[in-house]
């Protein structure tokens, strides 16, 4: 039987959740035995080369590229897992959601902020190649169907491990009190 295939990505996140995945210590050797990685920053595969079983999403969607990648993941993965506060509720990037419209955020960042020193032409980055910023930061499950959620900032390594093993083996998730934390 072929090994289940896993893909991962970090959208509007800080890679902390990926770090936490690496935090499973020596169990990473077991993980390599259990699964095969496809598109992921872990193995640096940039595009999907085959259909995957599990897609792990870190970060929410703050720009058009995030949306594109997330939809690609939904297309190419049987199961999608939102990992971490940002994927689940937008997290720190979403702190702009309730404070100011995006126009104000951009103007503050590129025009008005005290640390802006040399933008005499008053340009807000607008190169065609840049992703377009969304009006607010969206939790992943508002854009595509997400099957599982693993909270935490970052989620405890044990939570990610327990959940992954359960998904791969088809067993019930073992989620002791200590592993579900939002911070």
């Amino acid at each position: 039987m072929s090994k289940p295939i896993v893909a991962t990505t970090s959208l509007a996140g800080c890679f902390g959740c990926h770090m936490s995945l690496l935090d499973i210590d020596e169990r990473i050797l077991d993980l390599i035995e259990l699964v095969e990685f496809n598109k992921s920053p872990i193995d640096d595969i940039k595009t999907f080369t085959k259909q995957c079983d599990i897609g792990i999403i870190e970060g929410g969607c703050c720009n058009s590229e995030n949306v594109h990648v997330l939809k690609e993941f939904r297309k190419n993965c049987k199961i999608l897992v939102s990992v971490g506060e940002c994927a689940i509720m937008g997290g720190l990037p979403a702190m702009r959601n309730n404070n100011a419209p995006i126009s104000e955020c951009l103007e503050e960042a590129y025009l008005n902020c005290v640390s802006v020193q040399a933008n005499d032409e008053k340009i807000i980055p607008n190169d065609e190649e840049l992703p377009m910023i969304l009006d607010r930061v969206y939790p992943c499950h508002e854009i595509v169907k997400i099957d599982y959620f693993l909270p935490g900032c970052a989620p405890r390594a044990d939570l990610i491990w327990n959940a992954l093993v359960a998904l791969v083996t088809g067993n019930e998730m073992d989620l002791p009190y200590e592993v579900i934390k939002f911070d």
């Binding site: 939102s82 689940i88 509720m89 937008g90 979403a94 959601n97 309730n98 607010r136 939790p139 499950h141 508002e142 599982y148 959620f149 693993l150 909270p151 579900i180």
Partner: peptide, 9 residues
Amino acid sequence: MVPQFPYIF
């Protein structure tokens, strides 16, 4: 793991 409601922000 996630609220069943959309976040209002």
